[in-house]
Amino acid sequence: MSGHIDKSWLVFRSIENSDHDRCVDLFQRPDGTFGFEEFRRDVEDVGEWTPVQYYSDIAYPTNDAALNAAIHVIPWLGEAIKSRH
């Protein structure tokens, strides 16, 4: 996890792309709101996940709302979800 995801937030789903170099974490905050963040993993980062954007600043009322927003702004995410089913 990064500085973009507070330690008090519960990450309940991580979705990686097929190259395993991008990931989206979906999480719930203690106040009951939901959010997501996109990460990348590059060789120069020594395998650590590095945040790509500041999506985690936005709060959504439901898990589905956060997931739908993530699919809308992260181009590879919809395909990654489809390929898992």
Rank of each mutant, 00 (worst) to 15 (best):
W49H: 05
R41P: 08
P51I: 01
E37Y: 01
P51L: 03
F36H: 11
I15D: 01
V24S: 01
E16T: 13
N17E: 04
D42E: 15
Q28C: 05
D21W: 06
D21R: 07
S18A: 15
T33D: 07
S14E: 14
R40N: 13
F27A: 06
E37D: 00
R40M: 15
E16C: 11
S18H: 04
E37H: 06
G35Y: 02
G47S: 05
W49R: 08
F12A: 00
N17Q: 07
D25L: 11
D19L: 12
L10Q: 15
G32W: 04
S14D: 13
R22H: 12
D45K: 10
C23V: 07
P51F: 10
V43F: 14
E37P: 00
W49P: 00
D6W: 07
R22S: 03
D21Q: 06
P51V: 05
T33A: 09
I5E: 03
I15Q: 08
S8C: 05
N17A: 04
Q28G: 10
P51A: 01
F12E: 04
E38M: 09
I15Y: 09
R13V: 09
V52L: 06
P51D: 02
E38K: 08
V24E: 06
D42G: 08
F39W: 12
N17P: 07
R13C: 01
E16G: 07
R13G: 05
C23K: 15
L10N: 14
D45C: 03
R41A: 12
T33P: 07
E38P: 10
L26M: 07
V43L: 15
H20E: 14
F34Y: 15
R40Y: 12
P51Y: 01
K7W: 08
V24Q: 02
F36M: 05
P51C: 08
S14K: 08
E37N: 04
R41C: 13
S8M: 09
D21H: 05
V43I: 14
S14G: 10
